[in-house]
């Protein structure tokens, strides 16, 4: 099995303590950093699909994401200055009045693994804070808003509309248990995904559209 294959298996099975060494070995064996990164991104794609399909659960996803980040740490110095692999910056937060963050954190991890530079604003984020964050960060291509309470769905709407008013071309993706595709359409969001597994492909689709 090639070294890159080792890395893939270790990421998929969440062996965070072993990934760094495996990535180093792959580099030493002459594999390109970009190829190793792509392999890890592909692994997280597999993890995301399995999560969407209900074959794996939150802990498995968390340890896979952690394993990937350990691998990325090794690649970072090698790839420094090479911005080609980034898909751009994504601002994410849970909307005002809502403090749930487990789902949001999983989505942050999946988008990060897919190649976005993530800026996590945390919970209880007002519409204005999302707008400020778009202003303050470079190369923002996407804003992701999470909402878990039916009582904060209006806050989700306000966030989307405030962002769109300030930055008409900005893409916005929404999600959270009570959110549906219909609701996303209704409030003018560009996309919706039902779970973290499918959020990465949806996000990529939106920014390319």
């Amino acid at each position: 099995m090639s070294k890159i294959e080792d890395v893939k298996v270790l990421v998929e099975t969440g062996k965070s303590k072993k990934v760094a060494a495996a990535v180093q070995e792959a580099l030493d064996a002459g594999d390109k950093a970009q190829d190793i990164l792509d392999a890890m991104i592909a692994s997280m794609g597999v993890v995301g699909d399995k999560f969407s399909a209900g074959e794996i659960f939150v802990p498995e996803m968390l340890i896979a994401a952690k394993a990937m980040s350990k691998g990325v740490e090794v690649l970072k110095p090698v790839m420094a200055g090479d911005g080609s692999s980034s898909l751009g910056t994504c601002i994410m937060g849970t909307v005002a009045g809502d403090l749930h963050d487990i789902g949001k954190n999983l989505v942050v991890m999946m988008l990060e693994s897919a190649g976005f530079d993530m800026v996590d604003l945390g919970v209880d984020v007002s519409a204005d804070k999302f707008v400020d964050a778009v202003k303050e960060n470079n190369n923002v291509v996407l804003v992701a808003c999470s909402g878990l309470l039916t009582t904060t769905m209006p806050a989700l709407k306000e966030a989307v509309q405030t962002i769109k008013a300030a930055y008409p071309g900005m893409k916005v993706i929404v999600g959270g248990a009570p959110v549906t595709q219909e609701y996303a359409n209704e409030i003018g969001a560009d996309g919706y995904a039902p779970d973290a597994g499918s959020s990465a492909s949806k996000a990529k689709e939106i920014i390319c559209a």
Partner: peptide, 12 residues
């Protein structure tokens, strides 16, 4: 669990 899955697998 969440609305669509248990937090941990049945084995766990």
């Amino acid at each position: 669990g969440s609305q669509i899955s248990s937090f941990v697998s049945p084995d766990m």
